[in-house]
């Protein structure tokens, strides 16, 4: 994400806001918050599928960021730094709640279970584009571990090696669980479309 452009109306750039925030400037904090709030909040909401928790975690992520902003030296992009911090806040929260941050290791099902056909649902294709709203619902309905992997990789763009490091699993596990998450989403989307077609 690029920083704010200093416009004719006097809007601060991201770099200026960071420097002023290090001095304790309230406006600068607000500028940084406004620049990144959507991305952080959306991440928290997707990972938890719970509005109240997402709001608390957004606040916590920014609070941690602003506590540590004095140590930011600009080696990485500010948005990358913040984003990584937000992911860690959410993962910590999930762990505290006892929710799996990576899918439980195939205790309940096998690949065959995940891909097996359901009568009347699996034969049809999704046929083209997937609507954001229907995908959002399907993601919310995923079990927490699958949801984390899918959001981190496909929504937020983290690589498997980064995910493996963050959630504490192998790269191979991250890949296979992502695949299963996508298969579950495919099933859910088809089921939803089939129900919609019946109405």
């Amino acid at each position: 994400m690029t920083g704010a452009i200093k416009s004719q109306s006097g809007r601060l750039t991201e770099a200026e806001a960071i420097e002023r925030a290090k001095q304790g400037d309230g406006e600068a904090f607000e500028v940084l918050y406004n620049l990144h709030k959507r991305r952080v909040y959306s991440l928290c909401l997707r990972m938890t599928a719970n509005t109240a928790q997402a709001e608390d975690l957004t606040q916590e992520a920014f609070l941690q960021l602003f506590r540590k902003i004095g140590t930011f030296r600009g080696e990485s992009a500010f948005s990358t730094w913040l984003h990584r911090m937000a992911v860690n806040v959410v993962l910590m929260h999930l762990r505290k709640k006892g929710l799996p941050v990576v899918p439980l290791e195939d205790t309940m099902e096998t690949d065959e279970d995940t891909t097996k056909k359901e009568p009347g649902a699996q034969d049809a294709s999704l046929a083209g584009a997937v609507d954001r709203l229907e995908l959002q619902r399907a993601v919310e309905a995923l079990p927490p571990g699958y949801r984390s992997i899918f959001v981190l990789h496909d929504v937020e763009g983290f690589e498997h090696n980064e995910i493996a490091e963050m959630v504490g699993c192998s790269i191979g596990n991250s890949k296979s669980q992502l695949h299963k998450a996508r298969l579950k989403l495919r099933d859910a989307l088809k089921k939803h479309r089939a129900e919609k077609a019946k109405r």
Binding site: S42, T58, V130
Partner: peptide, 14 residues
């Protein structure tokens, strides 16, 4: 699904 997934990023206002 993969193509639609990025639309979920930064899609919500807190």
């Amino acid at each position: 699904i993969v193509a639609a997934a990025p639309s979920l990023a930064a899609s919500e206002d807190p």
